[in-house]
């Protein structure tokens, strides 16, 4: 057999590749497959949370905030349990970030609440002395695009098999039937909010960006 291999350099190369690649296969592939699985109890983002994630992306929060807590004591003391890859299973795209001008936000939902976010987004320096974060007052008047967020949910459900319920499906009819749920979720968040324009918009059946964003931030745990 070895003589045969020596006479056939192509198959010899293939053999060498297989032997060398084997070590990589047994060490990398199993942990890769394991890590890509969602952690137990992880739920996909609700439509409102997806709309908030779009706001997060649109205003480029990732430029100053990361969403990845590394396993170092200094980091877990401040931000909580270190991140594991299965937590990002439904993040498309994930928003790890690599720049921390502001703090990490991966578990912000554990230690900040709706009313804090409302005050902070309106005027960050009133809460955190010396903060250089800009105010995001336009979030209170801009309307979040929950319809596109719904379309995103439908897409990831169909393309990636993200486990959404049966009520999330393509078509305008399905969206009109689902929309009240999104508004209910938004109203539940707005109960803790003080700005009148938020409540006015919700009465009209619109969701201000700030509500969607807070829903998303509260979800980060």
């Amino acid at each position: 057999m070895f003589h045969w291999l020596e006479k056939n350099p192509f198959f010899f190369s293939v053999g060498v590749f297989v032997v060398i690649a084997f070590a990589g296969l047994v060490e990398i592939v199993p942990s890769f497959a394991e890590a890509a699985r969602p952690i137990v109890g992880l739920k996909p983002y609700s439509v409102l949370e997806l709309a908030g994630k779009e706001v997060y992306k649109k205003d480029h929060c990732i430029a100053c905030h990361s969403q990845l807590i590394r396993p170092f004591k200094a980091e877990t003391d401040r931000y909580g349990q270190y991140s594991v890859s299965g937590e990002y299973a439904y993040d498309r795209p994930f928003l790890w970030g690599s720049k921390r001008t502001g703090p990490d936000l991966h578990r912000i939902g554990n230690y900040r609440t709706t009313d804090w976010h409302e005050n902070h987004m309106w005027e960050p320096e009133e809460l955190v002395a010396g903060s250089i974060m800009p105010a995001y007052k336009h979030h209170f008047t801009n309307i979040a695009d929950i319809e596109t967020a719904y379309a995103e949910a439908v897409t990831v459900k169909e393309v990636f098999n993200t486990p959404y319920g049966d009520e999330i499906k393509a078509g305008e009819e399905a969206w009109n039937a689902y929309k009240p749920q999104v508004l209910e979720e938004a109203k539940a968040i707005a109960v803790d909010m003080k700005h009148p324009e938020v409540h006015e918009a919700l009465k009209k059946g619109e969701v201000p960006e700030i509500v969607a964003l807070i829903a998303y931030l509260n979800r980060l745990k």
């Binding site: 909580g80 554990n110 230690y111 900040r112 609440t113 709706t114 009313d115 803790d192």
Partner: peptide, 9 residues
């Protein structure tokens, strides 16, 4: 307003 739990921190 609401203060979250700081149980594990």
């Amino acid at each position: 307003g609401k203060m979250p739990s700081f149980k594990t921190r």
